[in-house]
């Protein structure tokens, strides 16, 4: 794992959680994959183990990972589908309204949006 910079905005455990989620969305972590142990993550990222446990606990609460007794945390089978669903909702709620506003301001038609090359030529 590479060195990480934590930003001052959100609590570290939340940033760690987002990082794991990003790895799931990118397919780096697949259903059935084991998460590294709390100890390993704490040592590697130089975080206290309580912070790491808290991030893992939230992932478990969201049913993205599950604890297997004595073995550690594993990505659940439904994680990918659940994430895709919540990311879609988040995109529609937070990002899309801004994009839509910009599209309207620029006066782009649906035709132009669906096939930009037709009008502007290949890049």
């Amino acid at each position: 794992m590479a060195a990480v910079e934590w930003s001052d905005g959100a609590p570290i455990y939340r940033q760690l959680k987002e990082r794991v989620i990003a790895m799931m969305l990118d397919g780096v972590l697949k259903p059935g994959d084991a998460l590294p142990s709390v100890r390993q993550v704490a040592a590697e990222y130089q975080l206290n183990p309580i912070t790491v446990s808290r991030a893992y606990q939230e992932l478990a609460d969201d049913q993205l990972v599950e604890k297997r007794r004595g073995l550690g945390m594993y990505v659940t089978d439904g994680a990918a589908a659940r994430l895709l669903q919540s990311e879609r909702e988040r995109f529609l709620r937070e990002e899309w309204p801004l994009v839509l506003e910009r599209i309207q301001r620029l006066g782009l038609s649906i035709q132009e949006l669906l096939d930009p090359q037709q009008k502007w030529g290949p890049k």
Partner: peptide
């Protein structure tokens, strides 16, 4: 490395 060993 010092803190890494300590945590791990």
């Amino acid at each position: 490395q010092f803190y890494q060993r300590l945590l791990e």
